[in-house]
Amino acid sequence: MSNPVTIIMIEDDEGHARLIERNIRRSGVNNKILPFRNGTDAVGYLFGSDGSGTDQKGKALLILLDLNLPDMTGIDILKRVKENKHLKSTPVVVLTTTDDSQEIKRCYEFGCNVYITKPVNYESFANAIRQLGLFFSVIQVPPAAA
């Protein structure tokens, strides 16, 4: 992936976060990964203290989003990101345990770019994350503006 894209990982489960990070690294992606354990912290980082998102204006970001967060649902964050004029072009990858077809449909309707279900089977899980990493290495993200 063209540097310097930062991967924002919003995942409440530390174990999941560790496994995801490990497998992304194994696929050869070395970008900076910023982990957030809950929705509030992530929202605070993404939209700043005034909630406008000006802080992140022009930065190259990619968001890895879990839907089941302790303080809010990932869908709320997805909606806000896609409604914010500075962040709406940021790719959002929803990575969650939910495989409900209604939920998947809603996420795409709100503008999610990729939806991946975490398989319990670790081989499938590792495989999916590695493929995601490979995908990251070829994906084009809106570049950082001057």
Partner: peptide, 17 residues
Amino acid sequence: SHDLRSPLVNIMGFTSE
């Protein structure tokens, strides 16, 4: 059942690790 799945991913993942 959904919430039970989440820790299971960890157990399975780290067992494999």
